[in-house]
Write a protein that binds this DNA or RNA. Structure first.
Length: 279
DNA sequence: CCCACGACCTGCTGGC
DNA sequence: TGCCAGCAGGTCGTGG
């Protein structure tokens, strides 16, 4: 469940549980996810108190009172769930990391595909962390605008859809919101990113902000039964205009002609778009 | 540097 | 009904 709105929803869901919480024990049920857990991972978390929960791009960052930061990425299929105090706990399939807090509550990380990531680094070295150092601007801040996007796309030949998935261009956008934003901005996903003029970049940057803000209000999108920390599902999937709508009549674009949402594959990912609106 | 492509995993769906 | 190819919200490394 992992683009910016989903990750931010997870962060918010974790906050009441984790902020100020002290980690009592950590159980690792395998040696790593996509990459091995860092040396001394469990021991470094044990006894630490979480002072703050942040998000950068699709990463959840937990500041510890030890000066370290606990980094998590959900990959394609990762999720956190809370197990209340006193509830008997037996691990389910793909429960890989279990934190028991001093409060008696538990936090479980489950990830069937194991594309997720967990790491630990020193807070004062944050700029040097490989996953974070090259990230582009946060789309929901003032650091991101049509002008900024335009500059970042200059000279690029990759299709705009592919550029939006590049976390160095703008961070936190994934396949769903790339498709939805391009639709809203009326931009053809195949268009060479370096050839998009400033006015269109303005539209696109605004579309990214709009669609992500709308998704955040709905608690993100829940595909394939994915749930948030509290067990509820996000609702934004009901507001998709193109994503997952292949073959459906395009109604949202407002033009009167009868036409349909098409798919193409770009950089190995399915792009959904309306050939009429996105010329 | 830039870009295309495969690899990493498991689970679900749709077509035969 | 059962089986299997194909596909899934992401990143990273390796080539040319």
């Amino acid at each position: 469940m992992p683009e910016l709105p989903e990750v931010e929803t997870v962060r918010k869901g974790l906050e009441p549980l984790l902020k100020g919480a002290t980690i009592k024990t950590v159980t690792l049920r395998r040696t790593g996810l996509r990459a091995p857990f860092p040396a001394g991972f469990a021991q470094s978390l044990e006894g630490a108190t979480i002072t703050r929960l942040r998000r950068r791009a699709k990463y959840i960052l937990a500041d510890l009172d030890t000066g370290q930061v606990w980094l998590s990425h959900l990959g394609m299929s990762g999720s956190f769930r809370e197990v209340p105090k006193g509830t008997p706990f037996t691990p389910e399939t793909h429960d890989h990391v279990i934190l028991t807090l001093e409060s008696g509550k538990r936090l479980v990380f489950n990830d069937p595909r194991r594309f997720g990531q967990m790491d630990l680094y020193d807070r004062d070295q944050e700029d040097a962390h490989k996953a974070l150092s090259a990230l582009g601007p946060e789309p929901l801040t003032r650091d991101f605008s049509g002008l900024v996007l335009h500059k970042r796309l200059l000279g690029k030949k990759v299709p705009i859809k592919v550029a939006l998935l590049d976390q160095r261009v703008v961070s936190g956008v994934g396949n769903i919101y790339a498709c939805e934003a391009l639709f809203r901005a009326g931009i053809n996903p195949r268009k060479a990113s370096g050839k998009i003029n400033l006015a269109s970049c303005d539209d696109l940057a605004q579309a990214i902000k709009d669609v992500m803000n709308a998704a955040l209000k709905s608690g993100g999108s829940s595909l394939r039964n994915h749930r948030q920390v509290d067990g509820k599902e996000g609702l934004f999937q009901h507001h998709f205009m193109v994503y997952d709508h292949a073959g459906a009549r395009c109604t949202a674009c407002g033009c009167k002609k009868e036409h349909y949402i098409k798919t193409i594959v770009q950089a190995g990912r399915t792009t959904f778009y309306c050939p009429e609106k996105q010329r």
